[in-house]
Deep mutational scan, measured.
Amino acid sequence: DETGKFLVLALYDYQEKSPREVTAKKGDILTLLNSTNKDWWKVEVNGRQGFVPAAYVKFL
Rank of each mutant, 00 (worst) to 15 (best):
L32Y: 02
Y14R: 00
Q15A: 11
L11W: 08
G27D: 04
S18H: 11
N46S: 07
R20I: 12
N46R: 10
I29G: 01
L32E: 00
L11C: 13
D13F: 10
T3R: 13
R20A: 12
D39I: 13
A55C: 14
W41H: 00
K25G: 04
G47C: 05
T3Y: 13
F51E: 02
G50I: 07
Q15K: 11
L32S: 01
I29Q: 03
Q49N: 05
L11I: 12
K38Q: 10
L30H: 01
A24K: 03
L30T: 01
Q49M: 08
K5M: 12
D13G: 06
T3A: 12
A55S: 14
K17A: 10
P19M: 09
K17W: 04
D13M: 08
Q49D: 05
L30R: 00
P53M: 09
L30F: 06
L30S: 01
K38W: 07
D28H: 05
T31M: 12
P19D: 11
Q49A: 09
G27M: 03
V43F: 03
A55G: 11
Q15W: 13
V22T: 04
D13L: 08
R20T: 11
L32D: 00
K5T: 11
K58W: 09
A24R: 03
L33F: 02
E44A: 07
V43W: 01
T31S: 06
W41E: 00
S35K: 12
E16Q: 13
V52S: 01
F59H: 09
K17I: 07
W41A: 02
L33Y: 02
A55R: 13
G50R: 00
E44H: 03
E16N: 05
D13Q: 03
F59D: 07
L60G: 02
T23G: 06
D39A: 09
L9C: 14
G50M: 05
G4Y: 12
P19W: 14
K25V: 08
T36V: 10
L7S: 06
L11N: 02
Y56G: 07
K25M: 09
Q49H: 07
E16H: 08
S35Q: 10
K42T: 07
D39Q: 10
G47Q: 03
P53D: 05
K38H: 10
K26R: 10
F51C: 10
Y56L: 15
S35R: 11
E21F: 08
Y56E: 02
G47A: 03
K17Q: 13
F59W: 09
P53F: 14
R48N: 06
D39V: 13
L11M: 10
Q15C: 13
L30Y: 06
V8I: 08
G50E: 01
K17F: 05
Q15I: 15
A10S: 04
A54R: 09
L11D: 02
E21Q: 10
G4P: 14
V52H: 01
L30E: 01
A54H: 02
F6Y: 12
L30D: 01
K17H: 08
L30N: 00
K25L: 08
A55N: 12
R20Y: 14
D28R: 02
D1E: 13
L9V: 15
T23D: 04
L33S: 01
V43Q: 00
L60C: 12
E44S: 08
K38M: 09
K17P: 03
A55E: 10
L30P: 00
V22R: 02
N37L: 09
L9Y: 10
E2F: 14
V57F: 11
N34C: 13
L32P: 01
N46I: 04
V22N: 02
F6R: 15
K17R: 12
D39W: 14
N34F: 08
D39G: 08
E2Y: 13
S18I: 04
W40A: 00
L7P: 01
A54D: 02
Q49V: 15
N34Q: 09
Y56S: 13
K38A: 11
P53R: 05
A55H: 11
G27T: 03
P19K: 09
L60P: 03
D28G: 04
V52L: 13
T31H: 09
Y56A: 14
S35L: 07
K5Y: 13
G50F: 08
A54T: 05
T3G: 13
L9Q: 10
L60H: 06
E2T: 14
L11Y: 05
G4C: 15
T31G: 04
T31N: 07
G27Y: 04
F59C: 15
D13A: 05
R48Y: 07
L33H: 02
V8M: 07
T31Y: 11
K38P: 14
Y12D: 07
K5A: 11
L9N: 00
K42W: 15
D39H: 14
V22S: 02
K17E: 06
V52D: 01
S35D: 11
F51Q: 01
F6G: 10
E2N: 14
L7D: 02
L30V: 03
A24C: 15
G27Q: 03
T23N: 04
Q49G: 03
E2C: 15
L9T: 07
N46M: 08
G27P: 02
D28Q: 13
Y56N: 08
F51R: 01
K26P: 05
A24H: 05
L30K: 00
K38C: 13
K58L: 12
V22G: 03
D1G: 13
K58N: 06
F6I: 15
R20E: 12
L33G: 02
L33W: 04
D1P: 14
L11T: 04
S35H: 11
T23C: 10
S18A: 08
K25I: 07
E16V: 04
K5C: 15
T31P: 04
D28I: 07
D28L: 07
Y56Q: 04
T36N: 12
F6T: 13
K17N: 09
E44Y: 07
D1R: 14
T31E: 07
L30A: 02
E44I: 06
I29V: 11
V43H: 00
V57D: 00
A54C: 10
G4I: 13
L30Q: 02
E44N: 03
F59T: 08
D39F: 15
D13T: 06
K26I: 08
E44K: 03
T31D: 03
P19I: 10
I29E: 01
W40T: 00
I29H: 03
V8Q: 01
D28V: 05
T36S: 13
Y14T: 02
D39E: 12
W41L: 07
A24L: 15
L11Q: 04
P19V: 10
T23K: 02
A10H: 03
K17S: 10
E16A: 15
F51P: 00
E2W: 13
T23V: 03
F59E: 09
Q49P: 04
Y14V: 03
V57P: 01
N37G: 09
S18L: 07
E16R: 10
P53A: 06
F6E: 08
W40S: 00
V52K: 01
G4W: 12
L11P: 02
E44Q: 07
V43Y: 01
E44M: 08
A24P: 02
K38E: 11
K5P: 14
K42I: 14
F59S: 10
N34I: 11
K38S: 12
K58A: 13
Y14M: 02
V45L: 14
N37D: 15
V22C: 08
D1V: 14
K58P: 02
E44L: 07
E21R: 03
I29F: 05
P53V: 11
K17T: 11
K42A: 08
N46V: 05
K26V: 08
K25F: 09
L32Q: 00
F51V: 04
P53G: 06
T31A: 07
L32N: 01
E21A: 05
D1T: 13
D1A: 14
F59I: 15
V43R: 00
N34L: 11
Q15G: 07
V8G: 05
V43T: 00
D28W: 09
V45C: 07
L60M: 12
A55W: 12
P19R: 08
I29K: 04
W40L: 01
R48H: 06
P53I: 14
V52Q: 01
G27V: 03
L9I: 15
V22W: 02
V43N: 00
V52P: 01
E16L: 05
Y56D: 02
G50T: 02
V43K: 00
V57Q: 01
Y14A: 02
R20G: 15
T3K: 14
A10K: 03
L30I: 08
G27K: 04
E16G: 15
K25A: 07
K58S: 11
T31Q: 10
G4R: 13
N37K: 04
S35T: 12
K42H: 10
G4E: 12
A55V: 09
P53N: 04
